[in-house]
């Protein structure tokens, strides 16, 4: 048995994304690098052989998923209940949390201009966001961040798969220097949060809030 086969067996038997680290538990002689290598081999094999599925990088891990072009065939079967598509307000709120996490309700509402407590609760019920800490402000407000399920829902391999603000066709770039600084601090936060498995420590979260509230108060 070679490593790609072992990795394949593990992925085949799982119905959720697995990280290389998790896959490596299959055998003491395996390390993450070997698993990564095997994953790339499998990926190429599936693609070369035009399999109906591919090895997808999703939610910081890997999962075997069918190719989208087969959806019409599969959808003709009775199938397990899938989560509903999100509403406009939910998506808007999630977008804010994804870029600004950790972030509190008040700031979310400032950006959206509307009360958001109901939407936040819904997102929490659906495990797309979670409480990741408390801010320093009055009453130590709860801070929210996105979850692994959030990445699974959107098929993001990691938070880096979110559209970058500088890819967006939005006008302001060179006209408002202040936006420039906000944008770079956003990116810092995103890259710091790459390992979503580890929640930022409270202290770290507090620092971010301070930054964020300075930004919005400007």
């Amino acid at each position: 048995m070679n490593t790609p086969q072992i990795v394949e067996a593990v992925l085949f038997a799982s119905d959720a994304p697995l990280t290389p680290d998790e896959i490596a538990r299959a055998d003491e002689r395996l390390d993450e690098d070997q698993v990564e290598e095997a994953l790339q081999i499998l990926k190429a094999e599936y693609d070369d052989a035009h399999r109906a599925f591919h090895l997808t990088e999703i939610a910081e891990g890997y999962q075997i998923l069918t190719r989208p072009e087969f959806a019409p065939y599969l959808e003709r079967f009775d199938n397990v209940h899938r989560p509903n598509r999100l509403s406009g307000p939910s998506l808007e709120t999630l977008a804010i949390i994804a870029y600004r996490q950790p972030i509190g309700r008040i700031e979310i509402e400032y950006i959206r201009g509307v009360n958001s407590s109901g939407v936040i609760r819904t997102l929490q019920d659906r495990s797309l966001i979670d409480i990741v800490g408390r801010g320093n402000g009055l009453g130590r407000p709860l801070l929210y961040g996105t979850t692994q399920r959030f990445q699974e829902h959107f098929g993001f391999g990691s938070l880096d798969d979110l559209p970058r603000p500088d890819e967006l066709p939005i006008i302001l770039k060179d006209r408002m220097p202040l936006q420039e600084s906000e944008r770079s601090s956003d990116q810092e936060k995103i890259s710091e949060k790459q390992g979503l498995g580890e929640r930022p420590a409270d202290e770290e979260a507090d620092n971010h809030v301070n930054e964020a509230s300075q930004d919005s108060g400007a």
């Binding site: 599969l74 999630l94 870029y99």
Partner: peptide, 26 residues
């Protein structure tokens, strides 16, 4: 900008919904 991002997320969501894992057909 947030609205633009949420549009993109909507299409990512739709793409994801067309890919299935094992167990989709119970």
């Amino acid at each position: 900008q947030i609205r633009e991002i949420s549009q993109r997320m909507r299409s990512a969501e739709a793409d994801r919904a067309r890919r299935f894992s094992k167990g989709f057909i119970p």
